[in-house]
Structures are given as C-alpha cells and as structure tokens.
C-alpha cells in the first residue's frame, strides 16, 4: 500500500517535471532561453526551499504552521539590504569598504536577526499556547502582520531595489550564447548544499534522529527522558534563521519589500502541502517543482495577457497534486 502510493508519487513527479520542461522548451524557443528558464526555476526553487524547509519541519515536529515564516524571509532581505547599503540603520560602508566582504556580513546579520526573533517568538509567544493549537495558528498570523508593520516603520513602505553592485552579483558566464548569472548559480549551489546538509543532519546525528522521532510522536520522545521543548526551540530558531538567510541571499535580485514575505509564504505553503506536510524529501522535491513551474510560467507569460500566471502557478500546481494525492506527494497521513 505504502509502496504503491509512493510509486504513483514518483510517476507523478516525473510526469509533472517533464511536462514543465516541455512547456518551458516550447515557449523558450532557443536552448539558451531554455537554460535561462531552468536556471531561474532552480534559483527560485532554492529560495523557496529556504522558506519551506522551516515550515515543514516545524509543522512536523510541533504541529504549528508558522504563518510568520514569510515575515522572517522579508526581514532577512531588509537586514541584508540595510547592512549592505549606505545610510541604513547599521551602516558598515565605512568600516568594511569591500562590498563582497560586507555582503557576507550582511547575510550573517540577517541570520542572527532571524534567529533572535525566532527564539523570541517560540519562547515568549508560542510556548504558553501549546495547549491551544488554534490560537498558535492565529498568533503566528498576527506576528507576521506585526513584523510587517515594524519593518514598514523602520524602513518605510517604499520598496527598496538593490542598487549596490559588487563582484559576485555582477559576474556572468556564457553558455549556448547566453549570459548566465554566476550569483544565481552560487545560490543554487548553496541551496543544494543546504538540502544535503540538513538531510545528513536529520539522518545521522543524534539530534536529527530525535527530531525525526519527534515528528512522529513528540510526546513519546519526551517520555523517554528528552526535553522536547528545548528541541522545539532549537528547530524553530533554525527554521527562522534559514528563512532570514533566504531573504538575505534573495535581496540582491529581488530587493526588499513588504510584499515578498507574503508571496514567499504562500509559495512555501504550497510547496509544503504539495510535498506532504512534515516530509523533508517532499519539501525538497516540491521546492524544485514549484520553482520550475514559476519560471516556466514566467517565460510563457512574456508578451501575453496572462501576467498573473506566475503568481497563481504554485496554487494551480498544488490543486493538481492534491487531486492526484490528497495528502501530498510524500505525505503518509493527512489526518
């Protein structure tokens, strides 16, 4: 039973990816354009993974769907922008004149802020509510609104677009007569490293084994003598830190605005549901699929009236998958 349903999942995944690539190929017209589409899809897929992985593991372990995850992504983008550019709240432009090195600091600052806010949210706000899961959902939603308001208060409502140019963002390599951004490749590579790294952590370390056991039955883990709440805090903090990291590495391309949080949250949720709630493999596969789908839709929508297509693609894909498998691609038990 489990085997056969997993087989249909794999068939479905392969079919969908082939269909996406075929549409991408048709709309691209040239191998260079097709390459751009695939690269952009993988890039967006990796950014999505950075939001969705936290959502998925936190949901699996703690039964909390963290609607504030998108807000952490947004804050990561703002912090990175702020540190990188002149005239921010933290102005490092004179202390660290080299923009490449400063970018590293910007990313680290974003991770620290994300982790700090993650601890505050879990310890201070969610912990009193574990007995009332409905309120946790409502609370994370409320927190996402407050974080958006705080960001607008500090950095105003005008979206920032990344203006500073620095080495790695600007360099390109050429393939099939088409220029590809090295930075995108770099983000894709980093995403792959993270996917593999987190998988290894979950597979081989003691803490990873405890997390996987907790995803199944956190009460039993506690009854074996493990302080599960401490694990909750750790995982929640890591999830928020990874989302903030995602926002930081996305900022040079997408800039910083108060709306990117919501759009990445929605896409991230689509990924998590599509992959199967709480399934790590499902999240990784789902991220790549949704990323590719968005990129294909973007390339298909160029010059047509369907400019809304890329935005609604994740939801359309989600509905398609849920029609095939109601509990998602790798979801064992949806109830």
């Amino acid at each position: 039973m489990v085997r056969t349903s997993r087989n249909t999942s794999i068939v479905a995944i392969i079919a969908i990816i082939i269909a996406l690539l075929a549409v991408g190929w048709i709309t691209a017209g040239s191998i260079g354009n097709f390459g751009i589409t695939v690269m952009s899809g993988l890039f967006q897929g990796m950014l999505l993974f950075l939001v969705a992985s936290g959502l998925s593991i936190i949901f699996g372990l703690m039964d909390v769907l963290n609607f504030a995850q998108g807000a952490y992504f947004m804050i990561g983008a703002y912090v990175a922008y702020d540190v990188q550019h002149v005239g921010g709240v933290i102005d490092l432009t004179t202390t660290i004149p080299d923009p490449n090195i400063r970018f590293v600091f910007a990313v680290i600052a974003a991770i620290i802020v994300g982790a700090g806010l993650g601890v505050i949210l879990e310890r201070g706000l969610l912990r009193p509510l574990y007995a009332r899961p409905v309120f946790q959902l409502v609370l994370t939603f409320g927190v996402s609104l407050v974080l958006a308001e705080i960001v607008q208060f500090i950095w105003t409502t005008t979206p920032y677009s990344w203006t500073e140019t620095f080495g790695i963002r600007e360099s390109f390599f050429t393939l099939f007569d088409q220029r590809f951004s090295t930075y995108r490749l770099f983000v894709i590579g980093m995403g792959v490293v993270l996917i593999v790294g987190i998988a290894a952590l979950l597979r081989y370390t003691r803490i990873g084994i405890i997390i996987r056991a907790g995803v199944e039955d956190s009460g039993m883990v506690e009854a074996l003598g493990i302080n599960v709440r401490a694990i909750f805090t750790l995982v929640f903090t890591l999830g928020c830190a990874i989302a903030a990291f995602g926002g930081a590495v996305a900022a040079p391309f997408l800039g910083a605005s108060s709306t990117i949080g919501t759009s990445f949250l929605l896409q991230g949720i689509a990924v998590v549901v599509l992959g199967g709630m709480g399934s790590y493999v499902g999240t990784a596969v789902g991220s790549v699929m949704v990323g590719l789908a968005i990129a294909v839709a973007q390339s298909a929508a160029i010059g047509t009236d369907f400019s809304a297509l890329p935005s609604i693609t994740p939801m359309l894909l989600l509905i398609l998958v849920l029609l095939i498998r109601p509990s998602g691609l790798f979801g064992g038990n949806a109830r």
């Binding site: 003691r206 084994i209 405890i210 056991a213 995803v215 199944e216 883990v221 074996l224 003598g225 493990i226």
Partner: peptide
Amino acid sequence: AIFRELSVRENLLVAQR
C-alpha cells in the same frame, strides 16, 4: 508507540540518556 519511520537501531538510540 514505537517510531515507525525510524530503524530499530534509531529507535533504541533515541532512548539513550
């Protein structure tokens, strides 16, 4: 209430103090 997705070895490892 064993952990169904974890191997026998991992089930025992979780219980380590």
